[in-house]
Design a binder for these strands. Structure first.
Lengths: 200, 200
DNA sequence: GTCTATACTCAGATAGAC
DNA sequence: GTCTATCTGAGTATAGAC
């Protein structure tokens, strides 16, 4: 699998620890992953783990922050390559599906983790920048009159809830076909629900 | 809040333990809820908890099974009161929103809990009966030609992913307006995405 | 910065009286 | 069936050499 931390500006040990933590936290869960588990998987000793991170909770928090920053950067990159609400929405959904296919562990960690359970200091995921970026595209479409006027939370739930649900089904192994193979069907249906006119 | 276990045919102690477990598991999480926590909250002693349940994991599993059975019964009740795909879909979504409003803890436990993390013996939630009942309504609509022909998983994601997302936003405190106030907007938008004809 | 060895805490589970 | 008291082991985190 691809390593999300390869290009980050952090020490080699930190990278290995973060990478192992991501894999083990998703596979076994935060609480069922012990420090000895991390030592075995990463090849880094207990002492070095505690040298790099204050404690286990801080490790999880930094992992999440790193993932959210990466995601935000990719989203802004996608937005920079497209103009107009329809193109932007379709491109963002494409990116969401592709990200889930490329980095399934990262996707699972972000979507599934009960963050407040072991990262009480971190803001809830729904308040994070990446989720606001998604919502703002919908708001923008409503302001421009391209999307039907409706509660922006409801519109966002239609626009992205369906996508996240499909991703979840795929991560859970219920959906066995490739995520991207459903891109057209999914986006066209969602667009039909949201857009003012059916023909474009 | 309403007690979901009041009418169940189980001993008084079991009811109190299950009720406390539901509340604490949602509030603090499974692993951060200790047996002493449960003893304090439920007023039932350690010995009695272990008399009623094999271990902590079994307690969580039985809690989940009980919730799923209750939900399945309510869903079948809703289906029995309606015929035709449109009426059934709308009624099911109404029930979903109302259930989340009445039993937020139960809803959170079912939606958020990383089940495989502490209930490895239980089938994943997406394979559970309640989720199959929801999907079958969509399948039925496609077979009848009322809904557009498309991958049933994609259609289900549109139909229910949007609803579940809105419920999640509400449970997370991001959506502050009552869930049911969005019923019309939500169902009409989803129906527009799924149905063969826009006017009914 | 990295490691090994170790101390300390506390949760899960049991024993056995009532 | 309910309780109190207790055991045991696992896991986090630290100390201190290299």
């Amino acid at each position: 699998m691809l390593n999300l931390f390869e290009t980050a500006h952090i020490s080699a040990s930190k990278k290995r620890i973060l990478n192992s933590a991501l894999i083990l936290f998703v596979e076994k869960g935060f609480f069922s992953t012990s420090i000895p588990d991390l030592v075995r998987h990463s090849g880094v000793s207990t002492g070095s783990i505690y040298h790099a991170f204050k404690d286990k909770e801080s490790l999880a928090t930094q992992l999440m922050q790193h993932l959210l920053e990466t995601i935000e950067a990719e989203q802004l990159d996608v937005l920079g390559q497209h103009t107009g609400v329809k193109a932007r929405y379709f491109a963002l959904v494409r990116w969401m599906l592709q990200f889930a296919e490329r980095y399934p562990e990262a996707e699972q960690f972000i979507l599934y983790a009960r963050h407040k359970e072991f990262m009480p200091g971190l803001a809830p995921i729904c308040s994070s920048k990446p989720f606001m970026i998604l919502r703002d595209v919908i708001q923008e479409g409503q302001d421009e009159g391209v999307l039907r006027p409706m509660d922006v939370m409801v519109a966002s739930s239609i626009a992205y809830g369906s996508v996240l649900r499909l991703i979840q089904l795929s991560l859970d192994g219920v959906l066995t076909t490739p995520l991207m193979s459903h891109f057209d069907e999914l986006t066209e249906a969602a667009w039909r629900a949201l857009a003012v006119e059916t023909s474009d």
